[in-house]
Every structure is written in C-alpha cells, then in structure tokens.
Amino acid sequence: MPIDYARNYEKELVNWDNIFKYLNQFPLFHNNKTQQKFLEAWKKEIIHSENQSYQNFSMKVISENEHFPLKILFGGIWLGWSALNIDKIETIIYNEYNQELPVKIPISQFLDEHKHLEGKTWFEPTDKIIYYPKQVGEFSYIPILVFNPSFPYLFSAVIDGSHRVKTAVAENHSDISAYLITEAFLFSHPEIFMDEFSRSIFLFCCDLIYFRNKKYLSDYVLPSKFSKHLQEDSCLFHFLNISWLE
C-alpha cells in the first residue's frame, strides 16, 4: 500500500492515524516524547512518499520491469507492499557482485506460502524460506533470489524463482542455488525499489524492528550526546536525512 503491487495495481486508501496509533503500543523507547517524535516523523515521511508514489505511478514502468511485492509486516499487522525491481537487482548482482558465488540451499528449507497460511488468521514467523508456488516447468540452474534479512524479520522469501523451487520440490532435488539479498543490499541500492513508498515503508519496518530489539536504557533523560547517537542509529536519519529529535 498505497499501490497494490500484488494484484491489480490499484491505489489504496490507508488510515495512517489508526496504524500509527496501533504501533504506538509497542515500546520502542523508554522516553515517551522520543517515541512520539519518532513516530510522528515517520508518519509524515510515509504520507509524503505515498503521495509521491501516486503522482509518479506508471503502468508503462510496471509492464517494462519484472518486480516482486515484498510483504511488510510488524506487530501482527500488514503495513504495506515494498515492490522490488527484479531486473535491477539482477543487473547489480551480475555486474557488481560477480565475484560472489551463489550458495546452495537445501530444498527442505523452503515452505509453500499457501501451506504456511493454512488455518491461520495472521502470518506467523517461520525460519523457513517462503516461496510462492507457480506451475511446475522445466528446471533451470539459474540461481534464484532470496530476501534473507539478518535482522529478526518474520520470514525469508524467494523474490525471484518460485517456479524453480516448485519444480525442484516436484523433482526431488536436494538443493538449489541462490543469491541471498540482505537488507544491507537494499540499503545500498535505493534504485531497486519500484517507488518512493516502497523504500520508505521498508526502511520504516527496519527502524521498528531495530528499536524494538535495541533495548535502550539511557533514553529516559536523553542527554544531548546520547540523543544524537539515538537519531543517527535510525534509517530515518541515516538514509532519508530526516532529523527527528530536534
């Protein structure tokens, strides 16, 4: 959201007031004023990026670029889609990262999304790699692309090559070659996001997870030096150059 990259590319209306009210229940900081400033700054950025995505959306760009809608989830709710440009990811990998070899992943590590969601009302965390089943076809040894974050996200996911995984499962292959795409790769290459909102919602999720797990103990008082350190730790400041603790 705001653009449904998973189905029909329609623009969706989101009540960000309700979403941020819900997110405020998660203690990211000990200091309530710090949390308020953090969430208010992110809310402003999310709404701005949403508007930019609306204005710049083009079906021509969509049709010319293979892309993958990555689910962005936090605290049991779906924050939106972060659409990744597969063509640009592959260009970067093959041109800039050609010194790195793909890894072998056991087929037992993959889990069909439909099976994972059976009987569940929300997306539960899993240590398996989620793939999105398509029709079985001729197997290809071209490495697949896997989003494999190092931070505690809910799951890893196949972002390109789900049909190869399904074929490998059907043909009882023992493993499959893959390039692992971490958040560091996405941080370094903003051009791989399909629009501004896709990048902002991904960075927002990274910030939420980081501060939820950081356990700051000294932000009760927030002396100026610590305040600066806290701000510089955020994606909001580091990647989007937004000062939120002033």
Rank of each mutant, 00 (worst) to 15 (best):
residue 8 N to E: 05
residue 22 Y to C: 00
residue 136 V to K: 10
residue 145 L to D: 07
residue 51 N to K: 13
residue 83 A to E: 11
residue 16 W to V: 02
residue 137 G to F: 06
residue 94 Y to W: 05
residue 195 D to C: 04
residue 20 F to H: 14
residue 8 N to Y: 03
residue 123 F to W: 05
residue 97 Y to S: 12
residue 181 I to D: 03
residue 1 M to T: 13
residue 203 L to Y: 08
residue 90 E to N: 13
residue 48 H to F: 11
residue 138 E to S: 13
residue 198 S to R: 11
residue 183 E to P: 03
residue 195 D to P: 02
residue 52 Q to M: 15
residue 184 A to S: 12
residue 156 S to T: 10
residue 79 L to Q: 11
residue 51 N to R: 11
residue 126 T to M: 02
residue 37 K to T: 09
residue 169 V to A: 01
residue 134 K to G: 14
residue 125 P to F: 04
residue 225 K to N: 13
residue 55 Q to R: 12
residue 165 V to R: 01
residue 116 H to G: 00
residue 190 P to S: 14
residue 224 S to D: 14
residue 23 L to V: 05
residue 206 C to F: 11
residue 73 L to E: 15
residue 49 S to A: 15
residue 179 Y to G: 00
residue 215 K to L: 09
residue 19 I to H: 10
residue 85 N to Y: 02
residue 62 I to P: 02
residue 95 N to C: 07
residue 239 F to V: 10
residue 203 L to R: 03
residue 169 V to C: 01
residue 136 V to C: 10
residue 159 I to A: 05
residue 76 G to F: 04
residue 71 K to G: 08
residue 175 D to P: 06
residue 235 C to P: 03
residue 30 H to G: 06
residue 178 A to C: 00
residue 105 I to Y: 09
residue 91 T to E: 14
residue 6 A to K: 12
residue 127 D to L: 02
residue 91 T to I: 09
residue 243 S to W: 02
residue 189 H to Q: 09
residue 160 D to C: 03
residue 154 L to D: 08
residue 162 S to W: 04
residue 87 D to I: 10
residue 220 Y to R: 12
residue 87 D to T: 12
residue 51 N to M: 04
residue 19 I to Y: 10
residue 195 D to K: 12
residue 109 Q to C: 13
residue 20 F to M: 12
residue 31 N to K: 05
residue 76 G to I: 01
residue 3 I to G: 05
residue 23 L to Y: 06
